[in-house]
Every structure is written in structure tokens, then in C-alpha cells.
Design a protein around this nucleic acid. Structure first.
Lengths: 198, 198
DNA sequence: CAATTAACATACGGGACGTATGCAAACTGG
DNA sequence: CCAGTTTGCATACGTCCCGTATGTTAATTG
């Protein structure tokens, strides 16, 4: 009889909780999600939750970390091109589109900054952010973009994309706003490029 | 004996509640602020609150509207110069500095998007945002910045500034990060300028 | 001056979080 | 193979907080 290993069952429990949390947080928001309901949905009780994650915020941390890593992986996979600049611009566009997904908007872009202090985001810094910074640094070293500060620019670009994504998703029909955003993104980024043509 | 007018006392009550809310929301955050404590601090009870503002979110709406209007006024006052481009850049810098204040970060930049749906921000759209959009539109009409979409760009620029401000305020010593942000802001905005010099 | 309305206080119910406690299954060492 | 211990998870409890329903007093209106 398949007597499963203990560690395996633990991982399953944690996975069920994180999955249920991602769904509930994404749909209702962190604040309006009841831990009683959430754990019941996962076939468990609050006991399991507080044992594994300490408190409600601990669960949010786990969800955010997972989502952030997942997004970063997607972006890195898609922006691995020999042309640094093209890869960079492509990455920004893809991030813009990725950030349109409701779960991501609700959990990563809104709830995470609000409920996890900047202290958390500071230490377990967004993987996406690190990747973007590194990419910018490489381009500066290669002279593709002229002098500037990679870390600072990464924050600004990220903010621009986030705000644009939230605005796009507000609309009943997001398509036109997305098109406008992509066009203006190129305009904005062109200022960073060292030598001329867009 | 100074028998005060009724409308005057009402305004005083509302003012006391909004003031107490601004302080408490700014210090503890919206989620961790108890309405019992808040109203007691204002020398009132929850009865007054629910009578005037409907619910907790109603009070947050009032606080955010007031803060937003106040910020917009500050920015408009400081960026009223004959040189459109200089006024625009100056406004962005001032916004960056203004957005460093803890109350504003906590209430306007974090809690407002999280707890007031985008529906609210949509209708009672940030005064700041409207002003910035208008300013961009004027510059485009005058050919100071080349073609692009004022509304879209306003969102992107705003997002860049907000994200930068949050990042700056995270640091133990914000000064160096602020300096870096201002320098890179010029770099980023230069891409918008129609003809040449920064 | 009576009637009504509005500003606020008080009282109540429901729900959510975190902790303390309990239990049973799995790991440990001899 | 077995006693002791650890640990994953459930149950039970106390506390806090929000929103509503109800009451009271003072101002306004005709």
C-alpha cells in the first residue's frame, strides 16, 4: 500500500494552501479573504495554515514569492535574444502584457506592497526587478544605453509599466489602451538609447 | 453666548474625523486602524463616522480626495512658469519629493489603490493625474514634445515617479537615492523632447 | 410653538484572526 | 520490534472590529 513519505505529504499540504490562497487572494483580494473559507476550500483547517505559515501574511508572502519567480521565469525565457536592446524592449512589452492578468494585478501589484511592508520586498526583492536591473547594467556596459543608473532606471521603468498595466486593465475594452501604451513605451524608452534610431 | 450654526458644527465634526483618520491611516495604515480608537481620538463615537461617511472606506475616500487635491495644488503652484518644458520637469521633480512623505506613501500610493477599487480612482480621478495629462497635451500641441499620447504618457511618468519615491523612502538615508532618481529622471524624460538639448 | 428632521451616542450581532490545547501518525534509537 | 519523542494538523477559545439598528437630544421649519 502506497505509504507516502512524510515530507511529500507536507509539500502537498503547503501546495494546496498556496494554490487556494492564490485563487482566493486573486479573486477577493487579501483583505476580504477569510482564512476559514480558504482552508476549507483546500480541504484543511486553519490549524494547518498557522502551523506552516505562521499567520495570514506568511501565506501571502509565499504566494507572492511564487508568482514573482514565475513571472521572472517567463520574462527571461522570452527575452533571451542576442540583440540586447531588442530583448530589453521585448521584455518590457511582455511585462506590460503579463501585468494585465487580474491575479497579478491584485496580489503582486496591489496587495503585496500594502500588506507586506517594504521591508519584505526589500529583502526578498522582486526577481523581476533584479533581472531588469542586470539587463540594464549590461546594456550600459556595452554602450547601448548611455550613462545612467541601472537600479534607479529599473525602478522607474517598472513603475511606468505597472501603472500603465493597471490603467489598461481598468477599461472595458483594454485593447486600444494596450496599443497606445506599447507605442508610448517605445517613445519613452528611446530616450535611453545611446545612438539614435528607435 | 456664541450659539454656533449647525452647518458649522457639522463641518467641524467632519474635519475632526478626517484629520484623525489622516493621522491614523498614515501611521498605522488603513487596515490596522480601528474605528473605535480613531473616533475616540477625535472625541466622538462610531455613530458620527457612519452617519457622515457611510463606512470605513467612505472615510478613506474623503481623506484621499483631500490629500490628492492638496498635492495637486502644491504642484500647480510650483510649476507655473512660462517655459513649458522647465515647468513640466520641475513638476515631476517636485512630485518625486512630495511623494516621499510617509502619509502620502501609505495612504495615497498604497492603501488607496488597494482598498478603493479602480472604480473610485476612475471616477474621482487623481487631480494630479489630470493636471499632468493636460500639461503634456499642451506641450504636444506646441510641439515641445513630439507625438505621443498625453494620457498614456501621464500614467507612465506618474508610475515611474511613484515607484521611484517608494524605493527612495525605503532607504535609511534617502538622500543619495533621491539624487540618483532626479538625474535619471532627466535622462528618461529627455526621450520625450522634440528637438534636442536636454 | 408644535412637528419634524438631522446629528450623534449606545447597544447588538456576526465574523475573522491568532493562540492554546489536544491527538494521532511518523520518526528516532536501542 | 518497541517505547519515547517530535511534528503535522484539528479543535476550542478569547478578543477585536465592523456595520446596523435603535434611541436621544438639539436645531430647523411652517
Amino acid at each position: 500500500m502506497a505509504r507516502r513519505a512524510r515530507s511529500e505529504m507536507i509539500e502537498e499540504t503547503r501546495g494546496k494552501l498556496v494554490a487556494a490562497a492564490r485563487e482566493a487572494f486573486g479573486r477577493l483580494g487579501y483583505a476580504d479573504t477569510s482564512m476559514d473559507d480558504l482552508t476549507a476550500t483546500a480541504g484543511l483547517t486553519r490549524g494547518a495554515l498557522y502551523h506552516h505559515f505562521g499567520d495570514k501574511k506568511g501565506l501571502l508572502r509565499a504566494v507572492v514569492s511564487a508568482m514573482d519567480a514565475e513571472i521572472d521565469e517567463r520574462l527571461n525565457a522570452a527575452s533571451a535574444t542576442p540583440d540586447h536592446w531588442a530583448g530589453f524592449v521585448g521584455r518590457c512589452r511582455l511585462y506590460l502584457e503579463t501585468a494585465l492578468e487580474p491575479d497579478i494585478q491584485r496580489i503582486v501589484l496591489k496587495d503585496a506592497p500594502t500588506f507586506l511592508g517594504s521591508d519584505y520586498l526589500e529583502t526578498s526583492r522582486h526577481a523581476c526587478h533584479i533581472s531588469l536591473t542586470a539587463r540594464l547594467a549590461v546594456m550600459m556596459a556595452d554602450g547601448v544605453v548611455h550613462g545612467g543608473d541601472a537600479e534607479t532606471l529599473a525602478h522607474m521603468i517598472n513603475g511606468a509599466l505597472v501603472d500603465a498595466a493597471l490603467w489598461i486593465a481598468e477599461a472595458d475594452d483594454p485593447a486600444p489602451r494596450l496599443a497606445r501604451a506599447i507605442a508610448n513605451l517605445d517613445l519613452l524608452l528611446s530616450g535611453l538609447r545611446a545612438s539614435g534610431q528607435s
